[in-house]
């Protein structure tokens, strides 16, 4: 016998949200500050939403704000596909659909308490990490040393500049940045993000290490971390896949047996051993 569900909520039905603020962060990244028209969005760092535009489609987007941010929520959307192109035309006051928040594999906000955290971010990978970073900064006393490593392709692609500046001025965290290709006006580090790792190697040993970046980055970060022989359960990887449904049905996001939309998007490195397709 099959069970009848009494709640009968349509898992594919988006709820409306209103754009409060929209701004380009660089040439490709759009910042959206949204508020749900109905029930506020309930989420934890690492979760994502499906952004829906009527007649155009849906795209999965990780939430950029921390749940400690009480005034709605924030997304950063890269202009890459048909949906995100259309999202880029939104103006304050416009409506869009939101489903979610989705994902049970999230950042270890509880497990990381009292421990050092080293965030490794590549490019737009800063966005999902920012949710956790801001959460930690808003609950600073609960955590040990906090280090943020950020690598961006070139100076013009850097975004959240005010926030980056504020981070670099704080004395209770360490923020180290690099760009892959340095220009004349760039005074900081030049090189890929992995070149920053030796600078903080004394802190690696028992730290929680969340990593997020473009698909190609993970292999290099993991290679760089390998020589320090860290326990794999301390490393958290935020993985991207094609996601159509967000609710474990459509099959697109599967990595071996695992569904990124359900079991991820954040995975412990130690759990990826049985998922050869992951990296």
């Amino acid at each position: 016998m099959i069970k009848q569900n009494t709640v009968e909520k349509d898992i594919y039905l988006p709820q409306l949200a209103t754009v409060k603020k929209a701004a380009m962060l660089n040439e490709t990244e759009l910042y959206l500050h949204l508020a749900m028209d109905g029930q506020p969005l309930d989420y934890v760092p690492g979760q994502f939403v499906e952004v829906s535009l009527a007649g155009i489609g849906e795209a999965p987007v990780t939430i950029a704000s921390s749940p400690t941010f009480k005034d709605g929520f924030e997304l950063v959307i890269r202009k890459v596909g048909t949906v995100t192109n259309a999202v880029h035309k939104l103006q304050p006051g416009d409506k869009l659909g939101i489903r979610g928040a989705f994902g049970k594999g999230v950042y270890p906000v509880e497990e990381a308490k009292g421990r050092n955290i080293i965030f490794i971010c590549g490019g737009i990978g800063l966005v999902p990490q920012r949710s956790f970073i801001n959460y930690v900064l808003d609950n600073r006393a609960d955590y040990g040393d906090v280090i943020i490593l950020l690598g961006t392709k070139c100076q013009s692609q850097r975004f959240f500049l005010d926030e980056l500046k504020a981070w670099s001025q704080r004395s209770d965290i360490q923020f180290i940045e690099t760009v892959d290709q340095g220009e004349d006006c760039w005074k900081g580090n030049v090189g890929v993000v992995t070149t920053l790792i030796p600078k903080i190697k004394s802190k690696l040993a028992s730290a929680v290490i969340p990593v997020c970046g473009p698909p190609v980055m993970y292999k290099f970060v993991l290679m760089a971390l390998q020589e320090y022989e860290l326990p794999h359960e301390n490393i958290y990887l935020n993985l991207e896949r094609k996601m159509k449904c967000g609710v474990g049905k459509c099959g697109h996001c599967q990595i071996n047996h695992s569904y990124v939309c359900m079991d991820g998007p954040v995975f412990k490195y130690s759990d990826l051993g049985v998922m050869p397709e992951a990296i």
């Binding site: 535009l53 009527a54 007649g55 155009i56 489609g57 849906e58 159509k244 449904c245 049905k249 459509c250 099959g251 697109h252």
Partner: peptide, 8 residues
């Protein structure tokens, strides 16, 4: 497995 598409 399924795909999802919009039309207008």
């Amino acid at each position: 497995c399924f795909n999802v598409q919009d039309d207008v």
